[in-house]
Design a protein around this nucleic acid. Structure first.
Lengths: 201, 201
DNA sequence: ACCTGAACACCGTTCAAGT
DNA sequence: ACCTGAACACCGTTCAAGT
């Protein structure tokens, strides 16, 4: 006499994600996740290997959401600078909407699956085309390694309660994005520090 | 018949810090901290309110170390660009030497005491003088809000295992620092986006 | 086929008892 | 004065038993 499932993987993940935002990673217990989907803790082990597997699944979910938001932003404009600005805004908005989740996917100790790595690469990748048209194909990766760290650093400092010395955080963010894009434009061609070799000579 | 102390606060903190780097924050148990200093877990509660208090004490210790390293770097050169470069290198070196500790002090969920806030402000403050001579007193804070997020973002992405797309991470870091300093120099005076008001007109 | 209570080894924390 | 074992409420996880 087979028992019908009381829940699904997807329901567990989304319940766990909501719980994560409410109680933080260390507060996310198997008991609470289970009771949020109307089941007992041991039942979760039929679907996920352990607590870490649930966290990993949440991460994948978050990476996909972030990649989606960045993709939409990228498609919002053909003009590279405007496209980059839109992505920057979308990135910050995502982090502010999912602060605990954002911290989770950026965590040092986070385990990642191959799927997670792919979703992560996709998210990072959306900045490359506009950067390429801004600084040239061969400097796009180097440029991404300036802009992306700034975005991550800014929002994670903001979420951690930084920027308390006054002044608008919104304006500071825009200023940072503008300054970096300007700096990158200037570095175009001039710097070969981070290019493997300079062919055009 | 008074029992002599078997350990000290300082010994506990430094043992806990070593343990943190080895096993990570979630692996740092009161049992292990206690046994590392030759005592039983309940004894720790005579010195620290709870586990969170030990983590907070570790954070203060780390902020002081970071502030010390940045201060030394700041004093290494009078030339603002060279001073900023030295601080950037010191910042990255600190994070790489204390990866788990670095993650701890930057954590969203971290509690902070007033002492911690002061040590944190001191650490951030060392970049202001060279930035002031680079972009002017009134834009120094805005400039710090571009450079510091980049530094934090870069090292935390590096520690999290980012930058796997090839190319030298070292060179990428230098390129970022250079690009941002250049961008900030150019923005001097031109941008009033993030200044409260423009007096010089 | 799926869910469950009971059990195990752990954890942070409290507290009365020891010296 | 400081340290300790015992106890409590929790936690993740396993597993035999239920339907």
């Amino acid at each position: 006499m087979p028992s019908p499932p009381k829940t699904t993987d997807a329901e567990i993940i989304s319940a766990a994600r909501r719980l994560l935002e409410r109680v933080g990673e260390s507060g996310l217990s198997m008991n609470e996740v289970a009771s949020a989907v109307g089941v007992r803790a041991p039942s979760l082990y039929g679907r996920f290997a352990d607590r870490a597997a649930i966290l990993t699944a949440i991460q994948l979910d978050l990476w996909r959401d972030l990649a989606g938001a960045l993709g939409r932003a990228a498609r919002s404009s053909d003009e590279p600078v405007e496209g980059l600005r839109a992505q920057a805004r979308a990135y910050r908005a995502f982090a502010k909407a999912n602060p605990r989740g954002y911290a989770l996917i950026m965590n040092v100790d986070a385990e990642t699956t191959d799927e997670g790595k792919r979703a992560r690469a996709a998210a990072v990748g959306f900045a490359l085309p506009p950067l390429a048209s801004l600084v040239g194909e061969e400097h796009a990766l180097a440029a991404a390694r300036v802009l992306t760290p700034f975005l991550h650093g800014f929002v994670s400092m903001e979420l951690a309660g930084g920027f308390r010395l006054g002044g608008g955080v919104e304006a500071a963010f825009d200023f940072g994005v503008t300054t970096i894009i300007d700096g990158l434009r200037r570095a175009r061609g001039a710097s070969r520090t981070n290019a493997k070799r300079s062919r055009s000579r």
